[in-house]
Amino acid sequence: MKKVGVFLCHCGTNIAGVVDIPRLAEEVKKFPFVAHVEENKYCCSEPGQDAIIKAIKEQNLDRVVVASCSPRMHEGTFQKALQKAGLNPYMFEMANMREHCSWVHAKQPELATLKAMDLVRKAVAKVAKVEPLFEDYISITKKALVIGGGIAGIQTAIDIADAGHQVILVERESTIGGKMAMLDKTFPTLDCSA
């Protein structure tokens, strides 16, 4: 039997100021496979993550939905929490009820709450279908190529080289230096550019 845990994040007042979280929680409890629903002021904080880990262990959850911000923000954070709790980090789904909901519908809290329900329902439906995924490993050639021998290319090449790695610096002109070498003095220190 699939057991989904859903964590509803307030994001301070970012989400909770618009979306009616207690009402949302009541609704989410009715979704299929949902075994656990929990609110948190900040799911991404350390206590917030601990709450997720604790719930996974105590309730034997096998997959998790966090309804909070964009996955570009904190997907990795929550995946690590799953891993700590012994779950495959891909048994996870995020519902973005901040960027996709509370921020853009700040003036329509009722509609925003209904939309948040849809977003979480979607995430729960998807997470019910996910399977564990496993990372692959590839080898790494320990050499870098820097394309362009101006100020940016030279600085990058020197920094990588100083760290002990081989660097190839390619420049299409017959000399390195780029635009920098054309300059006289540079602000704000007015020292020479070469």
């Binding site: 021998g149 090449a157 190839i168």
Partner: peptide
């Protein structure tokens, strides 16, 4: 510039 050219870990390909 000279630092980059003389660094033992940097291979410089100009006009490339």
């Amino acid at each position: 510039m000279v630092v980059a050219a003389q660094h033992p870990n940097i291979t410089l390909y100009t006009y490339t």
